[in-house]
Nucleic acid binder design. Structure first.
Lengths: 141, 141
DNA sequence: GTAATAAAAGACAAAAAGGTCTTTTATTAT
DNA sequence: ATAATAAAAGACCTTTTTGTCTTTTATTAC
């Protein structure tokens, strides 16, 4: 479903939401170490997210990555779509060039249902709310 | 979710179920042309399926690929697991090394729920039955 | 204004996935 | 037996994805 890059990015954003804030910015090193992902590789992903204003950053001492108020309001879906492209959620699971409810493949409707459910999770809540849920329900990232 | 290889393989098996039989074996060329997939690449996938007894083949004139009675009884799931490995259906959607109902990631339950849905389609019916359904409901492969 | 810090940028490298082409082997129809 | 056929096998090649390392740029604390 999601590329490794995308998984790293999602987790990093959630990590930022859970452990950082505008006053306590986090460096790539910390995030990478905590999430167990390759540091320099993650750095590029964060840069990409930063360029797309899904996360914020400042350079220099006491600099790092964080989520500003606007960032916290966006959905994880944007992170996914920034990294894996917007088609992730609607390409045919059998790889057919055309596959729709009018012209479905054998897996179409189940796949659709599947994706709707996932979309609900990554889009239904703001990052902020998702982070809250992660804390409350003691989920792992 | 599924690799390209896996998609090609699934479609090819369904194509065999729909268009061939023990008396009318199909060559890679026909299958590849019809499904619009790279011929030699598909050939290897079919070889792999054949080795694993998910499809049958004979060499030489009037030879080709087909499904014997046993093959028709198996599920698409086996095809998937032969090509993409058995873990496809239970690796964490966020890529976490441990992610279970006891120790879930934020997407765990939704991912589980809908993977079950997909499993139902690829495992709930024999190839034969699935092919029947494709015919009846005029689905695309 | 200088040194230290941390992200940004960019050049490579390694691994995996996807794809092509050629040779070999088995089968069958003649 | 032989020629023709089609899968099996294997050697490569290309592209994409993933990962590493180095240099540059911006910021801040002193």
């Amino acid at each position: 479903m999601f590329s490794k890059s995308c998984k790293y990015a999602m987790r990093a954003v959630l990590y930022l939401a859970l452990n950082g804030n505008e006053e306590k910015k986090l460096g790539v090193k910390e995030i990478a170490d905590e999430l167990n992902v390759p540091k320099h590789f993650l750095a590029k992903l964060l840069q990409q997210l930063s360029k797309n204003q899904l996360i914020s950053s400042t350079k220099g001492p006491s600099g790092g990555f964080y989520l500003n108020d606007q960032n916290k309001e966006t959905s994880l879906r944007k992170v996914v779509e920034t990294i894996d492209g917007p088609e992730v959620f609607n390409t045919c699971i059998l790889g057919l060039p055309v596959c729709s409810s009018e012209n479905p493949c054998p897996l179409h409707f189940k796949a659709l249902e599947y994706r709707e459910g996932l979309l609900e999770v990554v889009e239904g809540k703001k990052i902020e709310e998702l982070a809250r849920r992660i804390k409350d329900e003691n989920l792992t990232i």
